[in-house]
Amino acid sequence: MRRLRVLVAGTGFAGRGHTQAFRAAGAEVVGMVGRNEHVARDITARLGIPFSGTNWAEALSKLKPDVVSIATPGGAHFEQVSQAIAAGCHVFCDKPLAIDGCSASRLREMAEERGIKTAYAASFQYTPSVQHAKRLIAQGAIGSPTEVESISHFHLERGIPFGWSHRAEDGGGRLNNNFTHSLAIAETLIQGGAIQICGDVRDDMGKAPIVEGVHDFTTRRDFIPEDLNDPSLDWGESNVEWSYTVMARMQSKLALKPVSVLFKHGGLVPRFHDDHIAVYGTEGAIFLKGHYGSGALFLHDGVAWEMKPVPADLASSVPPELGETEQCWHVITNLFTRDICGEAVPGYPTFAQGCRFQNIIDVIRRSDTWVDIERP
């Protein structure tokens, strides 16, 4: 079979990572589109990609790719994805799928109408440690799951330059860019899905300095002004959440009763104990270190905690020389490309999940479940 031809949208960290992942899956990356002409030209030259451009529609028409990889901020996704679907391309899209549930639902409908295969990169569920925990839980190591907690505190700098992460209309916010992974992990671990949800969000940021020159999201800290009290600085207003608390009830095929789940994330506050994901059951518990559970795994068998090493088959399932973000992109793109080529593969997240997650985020952001309590 001929190699799949892939066109990438986005020249930053995600664009480069998607390129690497699709190449590892055996696809040919034929082009990359970015906002800035000279940046796109420089990145494609470095990566050995034959086409660079700034016009997405033009690139779709000229290159006629089999697959597009959307590695841009969420605010650009609807137009890019809808144009790709209209061109008959299969679509791999990083999270969030869109800026709201309505837009995400429309993208899902459009893909289904055209028979387009889709993949949605809520991908940290593919770390070896999370897959190890999933296996243990499925084998009955903790009995029936009853409770999950996902706790993280990132202590992000308040001087991070103003950009897409501060704006709801651009796909920013911690729900779009953190909760999506945490929710996918929780659902993966207990083999279930959210059936009820409520939550609260806060914008602890307020404002951020406007600084020119930021292109790569991963290097934005390099642009933090030395003096945040400099009167010459311009400031942009944040309009998204930087902290959230979410409670959910999830149906699990491993439990007769709904599983209680707590998600707690503070984007700007310091951690004291380890960030972690824990799953409690009727006969034991599993504790995963790390905000996405990618650290050491501990199993409580009802008597004591014991660290469990990752099995060799799971440890070898990801490229060891890469960071965990890139590792997980490799797993999901491999499944996606094999599926497109007609191979039988395990299920992976698609626009169906991305659409559902975006509608859940809409519910949480409304925070309309509060009940006033009368004072005695």
Rank of each mutant, 00 (worst) to 15 (best):
I185D: 00
G172F: 01
Q125D: 00
A184E: 05
I160R: 13
L136I: 06
W164Y: 14
A121K: 04
Y126E: 04
Q131N: 09
H153Y: 14
A119D: 01
I137W: 03
G172L: 02
Y120W: 10
R174G: 12
A186N: 09
V148F: 01
N176A: 13
I142P: 01
S144D: 11
S129E: 14
E187F: 03
A184K: 10
Q131Y: 00
N177A: 05
S150Y: 02
G140R: 05
N178I: 15
S144L: 08
A133K: 04
A121L: 11
F154D: 14
S152L: 03
S182V: 06
W164L: 10
R135P: 04
P128S: 06
A141E: 03
P128L: 03
D170E: 15
A122C: 13
G172M: 05
L156W: 11
G172S: 06
S144R: 12
A138H: 12
R167L: 15
N178A: 12
N178L: 13
K134A: 15
G171H: 02
F162Q: 04
G159L: 05
N178Q: 12
Q131E: 13
Y126L: 09
I142Y: 00
G159N: 04
H181W: 03
E187H: 04
F124I: 07
G159R: 01
F162A: 02
T180V: 15
G172Y: 00
N178Y: 14
Y126G: 10
N177W: 00
S150W: 02
H166D: 15
G163F: 00
S182R: 15
L156Q: 12
H166N: 15
G172W: 02
G163S: 12
V130R: 00
E187W: 00
I160V: 14
R167K: 14
R135S: 13
R174V: 15
E149M: 10
A121G: 11
G173Y: 02
F179P: 06
T188Y: 00
L183S: 08
F179G: 10
A119N: 04
S182A: 14
Q139F: 00
G173R: 06
Q131R: 14
Q131S: 11
Y120G: 07
S150Q: 04
I137K: 04
I137Y: 01
H181G: 08
Y120V: 10
A133I: 08
H155T: 04
L183M: 12
T188I: 03
P145F: 02
A168Q: 11
Y120S: 08
A141W: 01
G173I: 09
E147I: 09
